[in-house]
């Protein structure tokens, strides 16, 4: 069997990711524009995209942004929103025998939802290699950072995003993602418990505790429905 060249392998990863790389562009632009409307400079918005590289938590940060920035609340909400990465890295980590120890940890730094999903698909078909993974992750990362910069630079001229409904873009993104997690009635119980707890906490507690309350209620709901099913079985 002929060994394919490294550059060909990198290109294959890049091509597999191309539709998602294109799709992330407008989301990066919206993030940059929203960040600019919250008073972040272009440099600050771009740095956040480059260092955090987790769209969901970045949009949540914009939602709870204050002046001066409250680093504790922002770090805590990033931890909560990104806790799903623990399961994702645990899962993909078992499918990386071709990676050296350091390469495995380096790869995890770029573990965005979209990259994780494509890597899981690849691992199901053939051996996941570091070069292919780099082709998947690096261009996607660069587009995310550059589109954030462009959005932040343009956003300063766009004015108030609320006037054209752009402030609703990220709740809309989350709504679509929630729908993607739907797996039947059990998910319904998780979502209902989370929504009720989050709204109550949002009305009565300051800061981002509503995210923790919703997460805890959702997890509690899944454990309760699980126990009930076991009791019936």
């Amino acid at each position: 069997m002929k060994r394919i060249g490294k550059s060909q392998e990198f290109f294959d990863g890049m091509r597999a990711m191309a539709p998602l790389t294109v799709a992330v562009m407008p989301i990066g632009l919206v993030f940059g524009a929203v960040a600019a409307s919250k008073g972040l400079s272009s440099l600050e918005a771009t740095l956040m995209s480059a260092l955090v590289f987790a769209g969901g938590s970045q949009f949540v940060a914009m939602d709870i942004w204050t002046h001066p920035a409250s680093w504790g609340a922002l770090a805590f909400s990033a931890l909560l929103v990104n806790i799903r990465h623990v399961l994702m890295s645990a899962s993909i980590g078992t499918k990386m025998p071709a990676f050296s120890g350091p390469a495995k940890y380096a790869a995890m730094l770029l573990l965005a939802d979209e990259i994780w999903a494509m890597a899981e698909v690849r691992a199901g078909e053939q051996r996941l290699t570091p070069v292919w993974y780099a082709g998947l992750a690096v261009p996607f990362y660069c587009v995310w950072v550059l589109s954030s910069l462009t959005g932040a630079a343009a956003g300063a001229f766009l004015g108030d995003p609320k006037a054209i409904g752009l402030d609703f873009a990220f709740p809309a993104v989350f709504t679509v993602l929630v729908m993607g997690f739907w797996k039947g009635r059990d998910t319904g119980a998780v979502l209902a418990a989370s929504a009720v707890a989050a709204v109550l906490a949002h009305q009565f507690l300051p800061g981002v505790w509503y995210i923790a309350a919703g997460a805890a209620a959702g997890v509690a709901a899944t454990l309760v429905t699980n126990r009930r099913q076991e009791a019936c079985a």
């Binding site: 709740p171 989350f174 709504t175 929630v178 998780v190 979502l191």
Partner: peptide, 19 residues
Amino acid sequence: RALEAIPPAVLMAVIAPTA
């Protein structure tokens, strides 16, 4: 199961006040 419930629960909590 608990870990799997976290992403939808977190996302729902984030959008619930807006929604």
